[in-house]
Simulated scan of single mutants.
Amino acid sequence: MKNKRAFIVMAVAVLFGLAAVVSASRWLLNQPGGANGRIVVAAADISLGQRLTPEMFKLAEWPTDSVPKGAFTDPQKLDGRVLKTNILIGEPVVETRLAPQGTQGGLSAMITEGRRALTVRVNDVIGVAGFALPGNYVDIIVSMQKDPAPASNGREQAISKIVLERILVLAVAQEVNRDETRPKVVNAVTLEVTPEQAEKLDLARSVGTLSLALRNQVDPQSAQTDGATKLTLLPDAVAPPAPPPKHVSKSTPKPAARAPVVVKTAAPVRRDCVSVLNGLRMTQECF
């Protein structure tokens, strides 16, 4: 009797187990995205500007429902293309990270269409102590002598002014690697500018001294300034300008001139005189 009961309990347990397995299998088969595909990923770290070869990549399993847009499935299609950004090992390669077909390798592949690359000379101070790295944004400040104003007696005035804002740093010296976060003091910085900005930057470096101001990469705000001069820098230490000479208005009547004072003298009165001889003394009597 005991063996019969144990057999029945075991049979019921097996039936329930089979039912659970069948239910789990059906649930898994009904879930979407269960299949995997194969896409091209980087076999090693690849720096931007490099010309690609099929040996730099490999095929890797990737969920079908999360394949990146523009991904490649054949490494041969990447032969001769140029990267615009760095790619780490295991990352998929997509079309947006590649320069257009026919682009040669190097810095020219990193320049946005319609823009130019211009290099300016810097030092450890102008280059923000080496913190102006590729991928950062800077403002360009020029310090120069301003043309004299009409009321300045022909004297030039020193001024510092931001002439360009949010300029992308493409390279420092001959390096374009954007993964470096340590400061590096160099003597030249290459900037990405529009043709109009290139003209302003070239003129600014020829008429004055340039400085770079490092800015936040996600800050799009524009700084509207009038520039700094000696008057705005130390307003209390500069003597006030001499007042302009007073000009007599044409509408103001001039004071009348005073007539000269003439002093009249009385005309002498004509009198009749006779001489009187008295002995040895002679006198004159007038009437």
Rank of each mutant, 00 (worst) to 15 (best):
N177C: 00
E165D: 12
Q224R: 09
Q197R: 12
R182P: 01
R270H: 03
G208V: 05
E175N: 13
L212W: 07
Q221R: 15
R271W: 00
A151Q: 03
Q174D: 15
P220E: 12
S152E: 05
V176T: 08
T252C: 08
E196P: 07
L203C: 02
T232N: 04
A213W: 06
S160T: 08
N187M: 14
G208W: 07
S275A: 06
E175A: 08
S222T: 13
I162K: 14
K254G: 12
L164Q: 03
A257G: 10
P150R: 01
L201Q: 01
A151M: 04
L212I: 06
K264S: 13
P243N: 09
L170N: 04
H247T: 10
S206Q: 11
L212Y: 03
A257V: 08
Q197H: 10
E199L: 09
Q174I: 09
T252H: 09
V248A: 09
V172M: 08
R205N: 12
K264N: 12
N216W: 07
P220I: 06
N187Y: 12
D226L: 10
L191V: 11
E192C: 09
L234C: 05
E165L: 10
P183Y: 10
T181E: 03
E180L: 06
G227M: 03
T190D: 10
V172G: 04
P235Y: 07
Q174Y: 09
L203R: 11
L170S: 02
D219I: 01
V262R: 13
E156Y: 04
I162T: 15
V276T: 05
P240L: 14
N187I: 07
E165I: 10
E196C: 07
T225G: 11
P235G: 03
S152C: 00
A149F: 01
A158S: 08
Q217I: 00
N216M: 13
Q197P: 04
T194V: 04
L164S: 04
L214P: 06
Q197F: 07
P260T: 09
A213Q: 13
K264R: 14
A267W: 02
S222V: 12
D226C: 08
Q157E: 07
A259M: 08
D272V: 01
D202E: 15
